[in-house]
């Protein structure tokens, strides 16, 4: 019961935040709405008993990435952007395209049998090691190679951005 209420609260935060992100004129308010949306997602993770994902979502996305977003927004003068027209007039084309994509997705999900889900089965009680241990086992045993490849990719990106930022003398 309580879980259901929390689910709807977090879902509302996620969707409301996402809508506000694209409709607000001020870049600062958009970024804040995105933070609200990300918080909602974090809450949904917590409802699924994925505590580690919840904490990491907040630490990385809100504490790291969004703070840097805000940092850039405060440094750059965005007054001009706020005055310009926000959406172009191609709403008819946009409507047709989104209805098409939506119909496609519903058809796909339906043919995969996702839409007619069986009745809810109570989740199995948590057994064995916790969330973090299970995640670590998967990441560092089964998927060690993809994990290392991903970290190498990030390292390349870091080195590349440093090279680009460095002034050529």
């Amino acid at each position: 019961m309580l879980d259901t209420i929390f689910f709807y609260v977090f879902a509302l935060l996620t969707i409301g935040g996402a809508i506000a992100t694209i409709t607000r004129r001020s870049a600062m308010h958009s970024a804040l709405s995105l933070i609200v949306s990300l918080l909602g997602v974090a809450g949904l993770y917590l409802l699924q008993k994925a505590e580690f994902l919840f904490a990491v979502q907040i630490v990385l996305y809100i504490g790291g990435i969004m703070v840097l977003f805000l940092f850039v927004i405060m440094l750059v003068n965005l007054d001009q952007a706020a005055k310009e027209r926000q959406f172009n007039r191609q709403w008819l084309l946009g409507l047709v395209a989104s209805v098409l994509v939506g119909a496609q997705m519903v058809w796909m999900l339906n043919s995969a049998g996702v839409l007619s889900l069986p009745a809810a089965v109570p989740a199995p009680a948590a057994t064995g090691p916790g969330n973090i241990e299970a995640l670590a086992d998967l990441l560092f045993r089964e998927y060690l190679l993809p994990f290392e490849v991903a970290s190498l990719l990030l390292l390349v990106a870091i080195v590349g951005s440093v090279m680009m930022a460095k002034k050529t003398s």
């Binding site: 804040l32 505590e51 904490a55 907040i58 630490v59 809100i62 504490g63 703070v67 916790g130 969330n131």
Partner: peptide, 22 residues
């Protein structure tokens, strides 16, 4: 006593930055 207690504290302190920035 949650099993990610220390991470919760870091998460809270990282959200706290927003208060100062905003």
């Amino acid at each position: 006593d949650v099993n990610v207690g220390l991470l919760v504290i870091s998460a809270m302190s990282s959200v706290g930055i927003l208060g100062i920035v905003l």
